[in-house]
Amino acid sequence: MQQQPFSFEAAIIAITIVFLILGAFIVMIVLVYRKRRNLHLLEKLNLQSNYKHELLKAQLEIQEQTLTNIGREIHDNIGQVLSFVKLSLNPAGGSLEQLQQKMHDSRELVAKAINDLRDLSKSLNVQYFAHLGLLKAIETEVERMNKSGLLNLNINIKGTPYELGEQCELVLFRIFQEALNNSLKHADARNFTINLQFNTETFNLTLADDGQGFTVADKLGSFNGSGLKNIESRAALIGAVATINSMPGKGCAISLQLNHHISQTNVN
């Protein structure tokens, strides 16, 4: 019988070795790719967890702010009304007609206090913001502030309002609260203007006051500027771009531009 030439067998062995090298190469690719994918996934998970953390923080801050507002409201408004009612109900002297008038006034004041308390109790509900939505929440805040007389708030709405997603709106509302707080506490402002622009592709929110203003670079570089930095980082969290313009004596304007589609992707 004739033996197979060695060259043919050597070729088969060479093919076997090539197969093995190829196999080892495939295993290496799978390992390296999986490692990279793991890094990417971990990064993504980290981002998601940061996002959730920031959202939770914003939610807690909103609740905290709400409680502060309620405390102030109870003290300044309902407390005053009820004190006035107490005084009115003082039985000392007066004709029957005067007493009837006093009773009538007191009833109206108590009714107002009940209404105010009902409004306040609504805002204590955790789901209150989600139920209201950004626009209504800002309008409620504008109404409340204007009633308090601490600051004169103006709201301008352009375009047909649309929803931006609960998480996105929550962050925007917190930014609005932060800006309003800054104007109240530090800027010594009298007027605060809110512009909401609902375009097809983008949503713009501008918050401007006529307070004492500041140098943006100085403020952002200092420890006191953490509120402004928060505004910037939170805006970035939902894919918005925050621009802060201010000069000493010229007030402050915070503009937020949000691509509606990008914000939805970020939230997802």
Partner: peptide, 11 residues
């Protein structure tokens, strides 16, 4: 076809 001894050994 009867494999060569060397090839068989290598395999």
């Amino acid at each position: 076809n009867h494999m060569q001894k060397e090839s068989f050994h290598l395999f």
